[in-house]
C-alpha cells in the first residue's frame, strides 16, 4: 500500500486535504502527522497550510520539521498548497519580511492595494498552464480553482512557473521543480478540477 503524509504543524484545516486525498485514492494510506520520521517514511508528501507565514515557520521549527520538508521536497513526489507553496521560497514580505525554507529560489510578495480589487484574492479564478506537466492531465486550460490569499510567489526562475492566474496582473499560481509541485490555489476545495489534480498527484512518479 502506498502512503502519503500530510504535514501537520498545527495550523489550518488539514481535514479538507486528507478527506480529498482519501476520496481520490481510497487504496492509499493517508497520514496526517507532525512526526518528521513518519513524514520521511511516506512515499509522497503534501505540505498544506493557511494562516500567517511567521507562525508557519515558527511551528515548523518548533516541531523540527524543516529538515524533513527540505529532504522530501528533493527526493519524492511533493505537493505544496497555498501557504505550503509560499513557505518553500526564500523569503516572504509577510510579517515585515520572513525568511522561509529556501527550497525554491524566489520571494513572496503582497498584492498591491487597488480599489478595483479586493484583498484577499478570494474565490474561483482561472488557471492557465504554462508548461505541460503530468498533474495537468485532463484539466482544460482556464479551469477554475478556489483561491484565498493576499500574498503570491515570485519565482526567480520563470522556467519553474507551471501555471499563471490573473488578478490584476498575472502571477505564478503553480510551480514545478523536478519532483516538487506547488500550487497557490486549494485543490482540495476546487471540486472536480481540484480532485483531478490530486488524483494525478497520488499516481505521479515525480518526473516532469
Amino acid at each position: 500500500m502506498h502512503s502519503v503524509a500530510v504535514i501537520d504543524y498545527g495550523m489550518g484545516n488539514l481535514r479538507s486535504v486528507s478527506k480529498a486525498l482519501e476520496q481520490v485514492a481510497p487504496e492509499a494510506m493517508v497520514l496526517v502527522t507532525s512526526d518528521p520520521d513518519r513524514i520521511l517514511e511516506a512515499d509522497r508528501v503534501v505540505f498544506p497550510g493557511v494562516g500567517a507565514i511567521r507562525d508557519c515557520l515558527h511551528e515548523l521549527q518548533s516541531r523540527k520539521l524543516t529538515e524533513a520538508i527540505r529532504r522530501c521536497a528533493s527526493d519524492r513526489p511533493f505537493l505544496g498548497i497555498c501557504l505550503g507553496m509560499q513557505a518553500l521560497f526564500d523569503v516572504s514580505e509577510e510579517n515585515n519580511g520572513t525568511p522561509a525554507l529556501g527550497v525554491i529560489p524566489g520571494r513572496v510578495g503582497r498584492f498591491a492595494p487597488d480599489p478595483a480589487r479586493k484583498i484577499p484574492h478570494m474565490g474561483w479564478n482561472q488557471v492557465q498552464p504554462t508548461k505541460p506537466h503530468p498533474l495537468w492531465h485532463g484539466i482544460p486550460a482556464d479551469s477554475r480553482f478556489y483561491f484565498v490569499h493576499s500574498y503570491y510567489a515570485i519565482p526567480a526562475d520563470t522556467a519553474l512557473v507551471a501555471a499563471t492566474t490573473t488578478y490584476g496582473l498575472p502571477f505564478a499560481c503553480a510551480v514545478g521543480q523536478a519532483n516538487l509541485f506547488a500550487v497557490q490555489f486549494h485543490p482540495e476545495k476546487s471540486q472536480r478540477a481540484g480532485l483531478t489534480l490530486l488524483a494525478h498527484f497520488m499516481t505521479w512518479n515525480g518526473a516532469q
Binding site: S16, K19, Q23, Y146, V148, H186, E188, S190, G194
Partner: peptide
C-alpha cells in the same frame, strides 16, 4: 458534508470562543 463535498464550507451561529472555531475547523469547515 466535508467528507463528500469538496468546495469551501463556512459555518456560523453562536461562535463564542477560539475552541468553538478550532472544533469546527477540525471537523472540516474552511
Amino acid at each position: 458534508v466535508a467528507s463528500q463535498v469538496f468546495i469551501p464550507l463556512t459555518v456560523g451561529g453562536g461562535i463564542r470562543t477560539l475552541e468553538d472555531i478550532r472544533c469546527l475547523l477540525h471537523a472540516g469547515a474552511d
